Computed example of a mutant assay.
Amino acid sequence: MPIFRYFMFVGGALLALLLAANFVLPAPPAVQGIATASNDPPPIRIRSDRHLPERVVLDTSQPTIAAPAVQTAAVAAPQPVQASASPALNEMSAKARVRETFAQFIPSEPKSAATAVKKVQPKRKIARARPAQPTGRPMMLVAQQPHFGFFNMTW
């Protein structure tokens, strides 16, 4: 039980030191000059130079003023004019009309044969796998020390 003996000796030494300090050092002075009935601290009052804006008073006793009713006229949307459209186009949906337009599209300048051919990229080289144990010897793993300081220098 060496720990129990340690605590007994160190605890006894600290207790003896505390009693010696209490005997040698003077007692703290008594607090005087507080004229309060209880031990409450005096109230702290903070004054500020900044003031809030004045209070806004809303008079709700008078009736509210309602805005006059505005008369609006309904206007029908104009119908698109399709003078040159055939009756077959009028029956088609918008998606079908767009598809038909792209089907009839002819590009103004055809691509030349030189730009139409894709460039063949060279085949990428792939690293070959090394054998696990070269020359029949077992591999040895070595641990490195961590680097401290500037420029990865060890000291």
Results as ranks from 00 to 15, higher is better:
1 M>H: 07
2 P>Q: 12
5 R>G: 06
6 Y>F: 15
6 Y>H: 11
6 Y>M: 11
7 F>W: 09
7 F>A: 07
9 F>L: 15
11 G>W: 00
11 G>V: 02
11 G>S: 01
12 G>K: 00
14 L>W: 07
15 L>Y: 06
15 L>C: 08
18 L>R: 04
19 L>I: 14
20 A>C: 08
21 A>W: 12
23 F>T: 14
23 F>E: 12
23 F>D: 10
28 P>E: 05
29 P>H: 03
29 P>M: 04
30 A>H: 09
31 V>S: 05
33 G>R: 01
34 I>T: 09
34 I>W: 11
37 A>C: 06
39 N>G: 13
40 D>E: 11
42 P>G: 00
43 P>R: 04
43 P>L: 03
43 P>C: 03
44 I>H: 06
45 R>P: 01
46 I>C: 01
48 S>E: 09
49 D>F: 06
50 R>E: 11
52 L>H: 05
52 L>Y: 03
52 L>A: 12
54 E>F: 04
54 E>K: 07
54 E>W: 03
56 V>T: 10
57 V>C: 01
59 D>T: 01
61 S>H: 03
62 Q>D: 03
63 P>C: 00
63 P>R: 01
63 P>L: 00
64 T>P: 05
64 T>K: 11
66 A>G: 01
68 P>C: 00
69 A>R: 08
73 A>H: 11
75 V>T: 09
80 P>M: 02
80 P>F: 02
80 P>N: 02
80 P>G: 02
82 Q>N: 14
82 Q>K: 09
82 Q>W: 14
83 A>F: 06
83 A>Y: 01
84 S>F: 11
85 A>W: 12
85 A>M: 02
87 P>M: 01
88 A>E: 15
89 L>M: 13
90 N>D: 08
92 M>C: 04
93 S>A: 03
93 S>W: 01
94 A>F: 08
96 A>F: 00
96 A>G: 00
96 A>V: 00
98 V>L: 15
100 E>I: 03
101 T>H: 09
101 T>K: 08
104 Q>H: 09
105 F>N: 01
108 S>H: 07
109 E>W: 04
110 P>F: 02
113 A>Y: 02
117 V>E: 15
119 K>L: 15
121 Q>G: 11
123 K>P: 05
123 K>H: 07
126 I>H: 04
126 I>D: 04
127 A>P: 05
128 R>Q: 14
129 A>N: 08
131 P>T: 13
131 P>A: 11
131 P>S: 09
131 P>C: 06
132 A>S: 10
137 R>K: 15
138 P>G: 04
139 M>N: 15
140 M>N: 06
140 M>L: 13
140 M>I: 14
142 V>T: 12
143 A>E: 09
144 Q>A: 15
144 Q>E: 14
145 Q>F: 10
147 H>L: 15
148 F>Y: 10
148 F>H: 09
149 G>Y: 03
152 N>M: 08
152 N>W: 07
154 T>P: 06
155 W>G: 10
